Amino acid sequence: MGVKRNLQGWGTLLSLLANIFTILSTATNYWIRQQKGHSGLWLECTQGLCSNIPCQTTISLAGACMVLAGGVWVVATKVALWILCQGGLSLRGRTTSTLLFISGLLLLTALTSYTAGSERKDDAFFSWSYFSGWLALPFSVLAGCCFRLADLILQSTEAIGDFPVCL
């Protein structure tokens, strides 16, 4: 059972990192930088003055998906910590991996819609808030894989538990 606990531990750590990167990316306004300022999902700052971004469907979709992904990650991380502290039942491991994959899909939707809908000029480029969102994506997928593998190990040990094993 040591491998299962290690996988659950790594999955929880990766889930926490993905959650931190997602919240950091969602809350900051450095998705695009320009010579005169910067902008994010919610605000556009030009020469020190910040204002709300005019309504654009793709950027609104990106913001909504980022918030949903962060919320799902909080729930998945809570369940992951519960599994790690109390020992995992198969259903909780599957639930956690499913939540992590759903949050990864929401994050992917947010980032691709922002990429498609952002109005960049010649002097503009994507900045660190945008890239921290992309950095959260592999952490989410790896965390989901860790919990799914731990779940498979738990199922296989339960399946062969009644058979005698010779060493």
Rank of each mutant, 00 (worst) to 15 (best):
G37D: 01
C65N: 10
V165R: 02
T96E: 06
T96M: 12
A150M: 02
G37E: 03
L17K: 03
L154M: 08
R94V: 01
V141H: 07
S97L: 10
S15A: 10
F101N: 05
R120N: 06
A80Y: 14
G37Y: 03
I59W: 09
I102S: 01
Q56S: 11
L107C: 07
G11C: 05
Y30H: 12
L137E: 01
S140A: 12
L111D: 10
W134I: 02
S118E: 05
G11V: 00
T109N: 06
T22W: 05
T96A: 15
T22F: 03
I20A: 11
F147K: 03
R94P: 00
Q8S: 07
K36V: 14
F101H: 06
Q34H: 12
W31Y: 11
V72W: 01
A80T: 02
W42D: 05
L111E: 12
L154W: 10
Q155T: 04
N6L: 13
W10F: 06
Q34C: 14
I59K: 08
L13W: 07
L154F: 05
Y114Q: 00
P54W: 04
Q86C: 08
N52K: 12
W42H: 12
A27S: 15
L106T: 00
K4A: 11
L108Y: 03
G9E: 01
A124D: 15
L167W: 06
A76Y: 13
L106Q: 01
L135S: 11
A159F: 03
C146L: 07
K36A: 14
C166L: 15
S25I: 02
D162Q: 14
G88T: 08
L91V: 13
I59T: 07
L41M: 09
C45I: 08
Q56T: 12
L16M: 13
G104Q: 01
I153T: 10
G88H: 08
I83D: 05
L135I: 07
K36F: 15
R148S: 09
P138S: 03
L13Q: 04
I160G: 11
A124I: 07
T109V: 05
W10S: 10
I83K: 10
C146V: 00
E44F: 11
Q34F: 14
I20L: 09
A76F: 11
L61F: 08
Y30F: 13
M66F: 05
G11L: 04
N6I: 13
L167F: 14
T58H: 12
F147G: 04
A27F: 11
T112M: 09
L154R: 14
V79Y: 15
G70C: 02
I160P: 11
A76C: 01
C145E: 01
D162M: 11
S132R: 06
Q56V: 10
D162F: 14
R33P: 08
L41P: 06
L24N: 15
G117D: 07
G144N: 04
G2R: 04
T77I: 06
S140E: 00
